[in-house]
């Protein structure tokens, strides 16, 4: 029983939590890829920006991290619209790799701006021991993990409704499917692109806040997520939001479970190499199923 308890508390729950965070980041990455056809290398740093915006809310107004989410989402949306306007839009007619290079530069610029304002020390939303509650009389779950899990599920559900029920969501899927036909149909691609930035940026903000809440806030935190969230997006097939949700969970779980002592005694893989797991899964995918778990070609 102790063994099972440890498994749930030390591996399963952390895996689900980081899986939800990866999923939120990966959805944005994959939506942007679908609509703009380039990999947004600054997406991790957009997460960082969200985390710091929330930190400002927590610090200045004493907000609960959840209450700081709207602030962070609005801020990163503006940030994304700004970088799209000033840096990406002017390059839209050039090969997509130019955009990729530009986004790498934007990643460093966001990071530098944050370091300039906040310095390089790690910061915390909340200090001290966190409240936890008992579930089913055996497991203890920290409050923030419940918040993170429930909010992630709610946001994904909201995204699902947006994509399938609203005109904007259908237009986003249409542009992702065929930008040329979307234009012929009268869909304004510029509008769709803007909304995609708002949605992708907001989800990244939430991911960043959750990441900071579950650990600490640091200027490098987002760039370090680029690998796992890209891996999650590729796993699910670039351009497929539902794939990214699954991909995020798989990567999060795999990272945590890789250090479980499956063979008794020692950890299967030293926790220091956790990040390597995402990479290994991604490389394996790229070799055997470059179009993602759920097939079909990326266009």
């Amino acid at each position: 029983m102790d063994q099972a308890l440890m498994f749930v508390n030390a591996y399963l729950i952390p895996g689900l939590v980081s899986g939800s965070i990866y999923a939120l980041g990966a959805i944005g990455l994959t939506l942007l890829f679908g609509v703009l056809r380039f990999t947004h290398f600054a997406h991790g740093d957009v997460m960082t920006a969200g985390a710091y915006l929330a930190l400002a809310g927590v610090g200045l107004f004493g907000l609960h991290p959840i209450m700081a989410l709207p602030l962070a989402m609005a801020g990163t949306s503006l940030l994304c619209l700004g970088i799209n306007h000033f840096f990406y839009a002017p390059l839209m007619k050039r090969p997509s790799l130019v955009l990729t290079i530009s986004s790498f530069g934007v990643a460093l610029m966001i990071r530098a701006a944050i370091q300039l304002i906040y310095g390089v020390e790690s910061q915390y939303y909340v200090r001290g021991i966190q409240k936890s509650r008992e579930v089913f009389g055996t497991f203890r779950i920290v409050d923030r993990h419940i918040w993170i899990g429930c909010s992630a599920v709610a946001l994904m559900l909201a995204l699902h409704l947006l994509l399938t029920r609203t005109r904007l969501g259908k237009a986003m899927r249409a542009v992702s499917d065929s930008p040329d036909l979307a234009r012929l149909t009268g869909i304004s691609t510029t509008t769709v692109i803007r909304y995609t930035w708002v949605i992708g940026g907001s989800l990244a903000a939430v991911a960043g806040v959750f990441l900071g809440w579950d650990g600490y806030v640091h200027a490098n935190m987002g760039w370090d997520q680029l690998l796992p969230i890209s891996a999650a997006a590729i796993l699910g097939g670039l351009g497929r939001p539902y794939g990214a949700m699954v991909g995020g969970l798989v990567i999060g779980m795999a990272e945590e479970l890789s250090s479980y002592p499956w063979l008794g005694g020692d950890a299967l893989l030293s926790p220091g190499y956790k990040t390597g797991v995402a990479f290994a899964i991604m490389v394996a995918m790229l070799i055997w199923r470059p179009n993602g778990l759920f097939g079909e070609k990326v266009r």
């Binding site: 499917d177 979307a182 009268g186």
Partner: peptide, 17 residues
């Protein structure tokens, strides 16, 4: 000339975007 990953009805609805 169709949005292949969208349903028939969604294709039509987009026609009336």
């Amino acid at each position: 000339n169709v949005f292949a990953s969208l349903t028939v009805q969604e294709n039509l609805e987009l026609g009336g975007y």
